[in-house]
Design a protein around this nucleic acid. Structure first.
Lengths: 244, 244
DNA sequence: CCAAAAGTGTTGTTGATACACCCATGT
DNA sequence: ACATGGGTGTATCAACAACACTTTTGG
């Protein structure tokens, strides 16, 4: 017995159009936008001022269009909603529970992004009266399955941050070692030893020491560092690991 | 200026039906099925005997139905095609390039699974004249974007195998330490030291030594071990790492 | 006895951990 | 002077890599 054609090659099955027609009402994109502010990991949420979900919060999202990939759609939606461009963006997975939206069959593709809050403050704000940042451990009930998407994205962030220095996307261009350490502590929910963290991170040679120091702090000013993307590229080719 | 409703809450937008209608022709599921045989990592591919793609190979897949999640669909499709049940199965991501299938807008959700070849041989075979195993480094040109999906799944497997002992799903219930080591070597594409591997894996306490030995080998018979899921559960709660 | 794989032991090196301590600066 | 965070040094311990070695078994 051989395969039935309709099973192993669905895309070219001539009878597929009947099967498909009622199946999917549409595909959306939902973005978990992470930011780091004063030692707290935060997420940008949109407030719904009208419609069924009035008064509730949700992730930022939109419809996938016919002629774009989901990566392009996520990029576009993010730009439309926040004016942010060229930021770290990665697909999580598809969320497909048939009851995730009542009454309709809508599949959503989750994304997460890491943004530098300083950039965000400059470029956006104007268009975003209804979107505000929420601390990661003070997240309200969200619409649909958005809490699940957010939980998944946090797990993903925790995993990814151990394998590549993507956390840098959450920081301003120039930062101190302790800021970086606090970022890792906050994302991973652990405590780190100052001295050991310094040695470890400097040993990786990923940071470039600048000739600048912090300004306007009421204690000894810390040296500023920046992340070196060239060295990062070299290291990724060899494969490397972050374990804190 | 506030959000336009159609942007941040797409699912309940009253005008959405017009936007959606032409957008998606359907969603499919494609599974990368990994097996391990005689030291080789292999993938199960289906041969297309008719239709546009005649003569070409592709991943095993099928349509997502209206009332099932993609996880359920993947499970169902796998069972229909191979009679395999209750196997390790994980979503990769959605593949959404608008041109991945010419003439139609079909999004596919990729999955990968790890199967024990001994189970497979028993239960399947009858229904699967047209599906055969291919060594991971002898993969032909596949239909659509299936090569891309396969490449992605291999990366994912390499990553996941370092964080949890999912590799055990590829082995028979009872195995020797060197079989396990060869599995890691094959998946990760590295060479390992026998002695160091032994110490490391035994030190994790994840394996249970059995009172059995290999049979019918033309050299000293190795002790057989099995994987202990109870201890695995304990360890995952604490979080643990495999680095080889 | 030999081949082939199983399995043990040893040693040098590296890196993680846990501290104690000094330094610079604003109030 | 003291609080606050910046930054250095060190002793101990666990993990790892490299490699040599012994054991068991079938042919």
């Amino acid at each position: 017995m051989t395969f039935q054609h309709s099973k192993n090659t669905p895309e070219i099955d001539k009878t597929a159009s009947e099967v498909m027609k009622p199946v999917i009402d549409g595909i959306t994109i939902d973005c978990v936008i992470f930011g780091f502010n004063k030692g707290n990991l935060e997420v940008l949420l949109a407030h719904h001022a009208e419609g069924e979900s009035i008064g509730k919060w949700g992730l930022l999202g939109g419809w996938l269009k016919k002629e774009e990939s989901s990566d392009d759609a996520a990029q576009r939606i993010l730009y439309e909603l926040t004016s942010l461009d060229n930021i770290y963006l990665e697909q999580l997975k598809a969320f497909t529970d048939p009851n995730r939206v009542s009454g309709r069959r809508v599949v959503t593709i989750g994304y997460y992004t890491l943004v530098n809050r300083e950039d965000y403050n400059v470029k956006a704000g104007l268009t975003l009266m209804e979107a505000t940042w929420h601390k990661i451990n003070e997240i309200p009930d969200l619409i649909f399955d958005h809490n699940e998407i957010l939980d998944f994205s946090l797990m993903q962030l925790q995993n990814r941050v151990r394998q590549a220095p993507i956390g840098f996307n959450l920081l301003p261009e120039k930062f101190t070692l302790l800021q970086l350490m606090h970022l890792y502590e906050e994302i991973l929910g652990i405590e780190l030893d100052k001295s050991n963290f310094r040695r470890k991170i400097l040993h990786m040679k990923l940071l470039v020491a600048l000739d600048e120091k912090q300004q306007d702090v009421s204690h000894r000013a810390a040296k500023l560092y920046k992340f070196d993307p060239a060295i990062y590229k070299k290291l990724t080719e060899k494969g490397f690991n972050f374990e804190f």
